[in-house]
């Protein structure tokens, strides 16, 4: 646990000094949201369309920053230094928690802006916030693992989104469906299937990543 905490703190310290990942995802989110807003114009989109647009913005914004956590270690040649002092599972979990915080910060900015600009009316905040909270685990868990896989490749940026999409598709599908229900229904039970799917995916991807990370990280 101590190693996980120390790696997380080290990454926070580095991010605080460079602000690379946070700037990348925030700028991407704001630019994409503006582009979508201008494209739609006066057209009143259905909750189904708005929920899909929200998750597309969230997915691609997070893709612009989540991979940085491992790419930075490879590009600055600190990956071997880190390997030398840490257990693989601690490295994965430390990086996972950093990406989780990054996603939460993104959503703190993106959600109010999306609601205000796109006129998205959330009926059940309970469903909406639960969807975001549980969905974050799947997004951060899968994104962190894919980031570790692509960090050694030469075409990192493009590969990250392409590889992440099929892996994170269950989060997108369940997230879009649960977000739509948050805008249509007030009963938590109505979104039970989607929330269970998000939770199951999050647990599976994190456990599988912890088990497999040693093979990815050490060749």
């Amino acid at each position: 646990m101590k190693q996980i905490w120390l790696i997380f703190l080290k990454d926070i310290q580095q991010e605080f000094k460079t602000r690379y990942a946070i700037n990348a995802i925030m700028l991407f989110a704001i630019v994409t949201l503006s582009a979508v807003s201008f494209s739609i114009g006066a057209y009143t989109a259905t909750t189904r369309v708005l929920a899909a647009l929200f998750w597309i913005i969230l997915f691609f914004s997070s893709m612009s920053g989540l991979s940085h956590i491992f790419i930075r270690e490879e590009e600055t040649q600190t990956a071997d230094t880190l390997k030398l002092v840490a257990r693989p599972s601690s490295i994965y979990l430390g990086k996972f928690f950093f990406n989780l915080i990054l996603l939460i910060l993104l959503e703190v900015i993106l959600i109010p802006l999306f609601i205000a600009i796109m006129n998205f009316k959330v009926v059940s905040f309970q469903i909406f916030l639960l969807t975001m909270f549980i969905g974050n685990f799947g997004l951060a868990g899968g994104g962190t693992m894919v980031a570790a896989i692509i960090s050694k490749a030469s075409t990192k940026g493009a590969l990250f989104t392409v590889l992440s999409f099929p892996i994170l598709l269950p989060v997108l599908i369940s997230g879009i469906s649960a977000t739509r229900k948050a805008a249509e229904s007030v009963k938590l039970m109505d979104a039970q299937n989607e929330l269970q799917a998000l939770l199951a995916y999050g647990v599976i991807i994190i456990v599988a990543s912890i088990l497999l990370f040693d093979f990815v990280w050490n060749e």
Partner: peptide, 27 residues
């Protein structure tokens, strides 16, 4: 073990003390 080699880099954005603290606490 301890290793010093040209391919092992320290964290450039962090101070020397922050690097030392990180590696010491990790161990």
């Amino acid at each position: 073990i301890g290793l010093v080699g040209p391919y092992l880099q320290l964290y450039q954005e962090l101070s020397a003390q922050e690097n030392i603290d990180f590696f010491a606490r990790m161990r």
